[in-house]
């Protein structure tokens, strides 16, 4: 078994997550001390003005530099490049990407790992749309938009994965490298492009139902222009994949 050799690098991009960061890190440490896998947490903070980096340093003191690895950047350069930056420092052969705002719960990570081993999948994607997956704190309108957009995407792209815009995923490192190099989109469309290109390149995708709880702390960056950028992203992928 390669079990003993496997290492999981969790990339946590943060922007103004001072309140959430210690909590998510605590939950990750918890999940891994139960599962016993080797791991590291790479925190990529983009110069948050709220003091996220001080919080990160405190965590580094508590958990040590082997577990908590700070790889900050001077200014807000966006989510896509934050992943690339984090990946360059990752020492694991698997990479887990998740939001730091507590909408993704680390308790699912052991399930991702189990799923990955089960089928030797290249990508394991969390999904809100099947099985026991779901959301908390969404009104009818948001559910309708989400389901409608997802249905349209499934019809047009047949991506072989049920949740395209979610960003809670596990990748083999070389697969993520290849996908990141091929993807050009920004923002949450980036997540969609990653999974669609994964299918295009013939990578195998496993799925794990997850619950998505809307952020409790901090500002939501969800804008009204989301629908427009979604439509643009969808058409772009429709014509290029």
């Amino acid at each position: 078994m390669a079990d003993k050799m496997d290492k999981y690098s969790i990339l946590l991009p943060t922007y103004n997550e001072r309140e959430n960061l210690p909590l998510i890190v605590w939950l990750i440490v918890n999940a891994f001390s139960e599962s016993g896998n080797d791991y590291e947490i790479i925190i990529i903070d983009d110069g948050s003005p709220d003091g996220t980096q001080e919080a990160a340093k405190q965590l580094e003191d508590i958990y040590g530099t082997e577990i908590i690895r700070l790889r900050p950047r001077p200014s807000k350069l966006g989510l896509g490049t934050a992943y690339i930056h984090g990946m360059q420092h990752a020492r694991g052969n698997f990479i887990i990407i998740m939001d730091a705002d507590l909408s993704h719960h680390p308790k699912f990570i052991p399930e991702f790992i189990r799923k990955q081993k089960e089928g030797n999948f290249d990508v394991v994607s969390g999904t809100r749309y099947i099985g026991s997956g779901g959301v908390f704190g969404w009104d009818l309108r948001r559910k309708l938009i989400s389901r409608g957009a997802n249905y349209l995407t499934q019809i047009l792209l047949r991506p072989g994965a049920s949740d395209l815009t979610g960003s809670f995923r596990l990748y083999k490192k070389d697969v993520l490298q290849c996908l990141v190099d091929a993807c050009v989109s920004k923002g949450f469309i980036f997540q969609m492009e990653m999974i669609v290109r994964a299918r295009q390149f013939g990578y195998t995708i496993g799925e794990v139902p997850i619950t998505f709880v809307d952020r409790v702390y901090g500002e939501s960056k969800l804008g009204g222009s989301e629908v427009v950028s979604f439509a643009k992203g969808l058409l772009y992928l429709f014509a290029t994949t």
């Binding site: 909590l23 959301v135 908390f136 389901r147 619950t211």
Partner: peptide, 21 residues
């Protein structure tokens, strides 16, 4: 779409346990 909206799970339990955690 209607069916999927109606059966979209509300994860009340997940939110409660998160608060405790």
């Amino acid at each position: 779409i209607g069916y999927r909206v109606a059966t979209f799970n509300d994860c009340l339990e997940a939110s409660k346990s998160l608060k405790q955690e």
